[in-house]
């Protein structure tokens, strides 16, 4: 199986501090992967590199069958290639309705002229309705998203990601601020999403990771410390020393 995303030998330095150090990582086209690691390990920075927010000093990042390099592209271009990202804190456009948020995310031509003349077709509105229902917001379409609860915003953001139809989904700490019931729903959703696309989940919560039941990559000081099943990595003495040992 050839990889969808291939990161090799990437390093990033912030003011002399090596946040990412010769990191290599790859994920297949329909795979679920969890990334764990202590605070400051470089998990968010890793996502910043893949999505074009941060330029690495060295290394390669390639994507897709033709292994195109993502390094010369800006954030918008990378997103259009099919990489979606969910941030740690829910970021929806609070001043706009749930429907507006979903329409913004809906897969469509993103050029200003095309957007200017875009008008919703019945199929688009059906899709918006279906997406909203999928995350339990079916009856909230005309509410301003700023009025939603924190959990509902998380769900709206997930629906927006689905609307983009990305081939690779990067999810930063999805369980933060969710109730146990919502966490369970989230794991189920992530697992089912990974059947048709690549999903990378960054998470602190071990219970959450266990339920994802997937390969785990442990990051530490900007590079990969261990990789394998959760049981495998939690038995790794290095991992125990730097991460689990500290609780």
């Amino acid at each position: 199986m050839s990889a969808l995303l291939e990161v090799s030998g990437v390093s990033v330095t912030f003011d002399g501090f090596r946040a990412i150090n010769n990191l290599s990582f790859s994920i297949g086209p329909a795979e679920l992967r969890a990334i764990i690691g202590p605070n400051g390990a470089g998990k968010t920075t890793f996502m910043d590199i893949v999505t074009g927010k941060t330029r690495p000093d060295a290394g390669r990042v390639t994507f897709g069958e033709r292994s195109i390099s993502l390094l010369g592209m800006n954030e918008a271009r990378i997103a259009r290639e099919g990489i979606g990202r969910k941030f740690q804190r829910p970021t929806v456009f609070e001043d706009q309705t749930v429907e507006d948020n979903l329409i913004l995310a809906l897969k469509a031509n993103r050029s200003p002229w095309a957007v200017l003349f875009w008008r919703p077709k019945a199929a688009d509105m059906d899709r918006v309705q279906a997406l909203a229902e999928e995350v339990g917001l079916g009856d909230q379409l005309h509410r301003k998203s700023g009025e939603l609860s924190h959990g509902q915003k998380q769900w709206l953001e997930i629906a927006m990601l689905l609307a983009q139809e990305p081939r690779l989904l990067l999810v930063d700490e999805p369980a933060a601020g969710m109730t146990p019931a919502e966490r369970e729903q989230t794991t189920a959703l992530l697992v089912s999403l990974a059947k048709t696309r690549a999903v990378v989940v960054v998470e602190h919560d071990m219970e959450f990771i266990r339920r994802l039941n997937c390969r785990v990559t442990v990051l530490h000081e900007g590079s990969v410390l261990a990789e394998g099943s959760l049981d495998h990595v939690t038995r790794d003495p290095q991992v125990i020393a730097v991460y689990l040992g500290r609780g």
């Binding site: 927010k53 800006n74 954030e75 918008a76 997103a79 259009r80 913004l104 993103r110």
Partner: peptide, 11 residues
């Protein structure tokens, strides 16, 4: 939130 808009694919 212009950063968020970029990650949605808008230039």
């Amino acid at each position: 939130d212009e950063a968020r808009v970029r990650f949605l694919g808008y230039a």
